[in-house]
Amino acid sequence: MSALLEIENLRVTFPTARGPIDVVKGLSLTLGRERLGIVGESGSGKSMTGRSILRLIRAPGKVTADRLRFDGVDLLAQSERQMRAIRGARISMVMQDPKFSLNPVMTIGDQIAEALLTHQKLGRADIRGRTLAMLEAVRINDPERVLGLYPHEVSGGMGQRVMIAMMLIPEPDLLIADEPTSALDVSVQAQVLEIIDDLVKRKGMGLILISHDLELVSSYCDRILVMRSGEVVEACDAGELKNARHPYTRGLLASIPRIDESRDELPVLERTGAST
C-alpha cells in the first residue's frame, strides 16, 4: 500500500520580537488509509501540524518541509489555485466549534450544497438528493427540516454533525479532524466520533484526529503521536498507550482523574520556570 500522506521534517516558524520561533520542529510521519491520532496540550503544535498539511498557515507564519506529499502530489509546490482544488475535495478538515465555523447567515442545506458545488457541477435535484443522503448518514433524523434551518437553530451536537456532513460530502481521501468533539457533551461526543469512525471505515479514508484527550484518541485511532512543544515525544499503537515509555506521556496519563478515583492528590508534571 502506498502512503497517502508523507511528511518529512516539517517545520512551522513564526517570527517574534526575539527572533523566529519554531512551533513545529521537524515532524515526520507517513499515513496510509488509517486512523492516526495526534495528542498534545495547548501550544504543542498539534493544530499547526494539521493546518500546515492544508497550507492554511497564514503569513507571517512559514511552513517548510523536506517532503510534504499527498497521494503523489507535492503540496508545497502547488499554487493557491491548485490548493483550492485539493482543499475540501481531497483533504478536508473538521474544526472544533460549529458555532464559529458555520456561516450564520446561510441555511444548512445551502452550506452543504456549496461544499459540493465548489468541486463538481451537478443538477439541483442531484444536489438535494445527495445533501439529504449525507445528512442521514450523519444520523440527523429529519433531514428535510434541517436543510432549511440556520446554524443558530440547531444544537451544538447537530451543528458538529452538519459540519462533518459538509466535510465528507465531496468524499475526500483524507479527513483532518481538529478537536471535533471538545465543544460537545460527553454523550454526544461518542455519537459524533462513531459517525466519523463509521464513514472513515466505509469509504476507506485516512483520518488524522487531533485532540488533547489521550484516552479518547486511543479508543478511536490505530496509531498515536504525542506532541510536546513542537516535537513528537512518543509514537505508538493505540493499544500500547498504557505501556507508553516517555515520561511526558506517562505524566499526562497519570494526571487525568478517573471515575473511581482514590488518589488524594493528582500527580503534576514537572515544569521548568514559573508556576502555572
Partner: peptide, 14 residues
C-alpha cells in the same frame, strides 16, 4: 484547561 494544568487546579481546590 489542559489535563496537566487541570490536575494542578484540582489539587489546589482540594
Amino acid at each position: 484547561l489542559d489535563v496537566s494544568v487541570q490536575a494542578e487546579i484540582l489539587n489546589l481546590l482540594k
